[in-house]
Amino acid sequence: MQFWQILIDGFAISALYALGATGFTLIFGVSGVLNLSHGALMVAAAVAAWAAASEFGTGSYLGALIGVLTSLVLAFATYFIAVRPIQNSKRIAEREKEIFILTSTLLWGIIIQEVVAYLFTNNAKTVLPIIEGVVVFLGVRTPSNEFFTAIVCWLVIAVLWLLVNRTKAGKAVLAASMNPRGVTLLGFELSHIYLAVWGVYGILAGIAGVLLGMFLGVSSYSVGPLTASAFSIVVLGGLGSVSGSLIAAYVVGYLETLTAYLVSPAYRSIPALLLLVLVMYLRPQGLFGRR
């Protein structure tokens, strides 16, 4: 009974972590940007979906769509306000740009967080789930929404995989992550590729945020922990490696769930962080990193 419970709960939460980390690692892989406003985008998407559905009565489907659109708009805003001006700047030395972008996206995330708190307070919100009710599966009473979350996460990840590996545009993105200069020589405009990737990232972060809002709920306080969790999953899996992130998401998700059930919910996140430290010592490139 408890075995199935841990298996099911861990699967759902891990799927959500995986989706959240995928966009984060994609952006890093393609454009070398570590976007520290990641958590803020997810929270903004969830709070927008909540506000649309609960405050303005749009219903859960339209609300979820509005949430994802909010994240898409914010992803482009992040790129044009916090990333591109630094990348194009001639007054910042090339080798310092990475740290400048880290700082600017961090600050941008704090701005979004404060705006959300100002407009909607820092109380936690939960997005109206698209599917309500519970199902009994293998003797475990589980909210239908938990299955829905896991299924949507994996569908989105599958679509992303097809997009990257089976379409011309996707292959260009893949190529850009390996050799940006080569891609431009082949006649692709690098800035168009970046724009497309930021768009895809916005949609991924938006879907992850809205699902998180339905599953667990979010508040403006969640911004930091969400960024940190995506960051540690991506580092654990190997920076820039999408499959590494997916596996790392499951390692972290199950480790947390096991701890919460078998040890205490109060120590939930500690073993995963210890594992991260251990990996940093023994294999600094991450479990599946190339570098």
């Binding site: 419970q5 709960d9 939460i13 667990l216 709920g217 306080y221 969640s222 922990p225 769930t257 919460a260 059930y261 919910p265 109060a266 939930r268």
Partner: peptide, 17 residues
């Protein structure tokens, strides 16, 4: 008597217990 961390987001294990 269950005390949980204030930053807990997933209460499934707590309610199940």
């Amino acid at each position: 008597h269950i005390r949980f961390s204030p930053d807990t987001t997933d209460f499934t294990p707590i309610f199940n217990k």
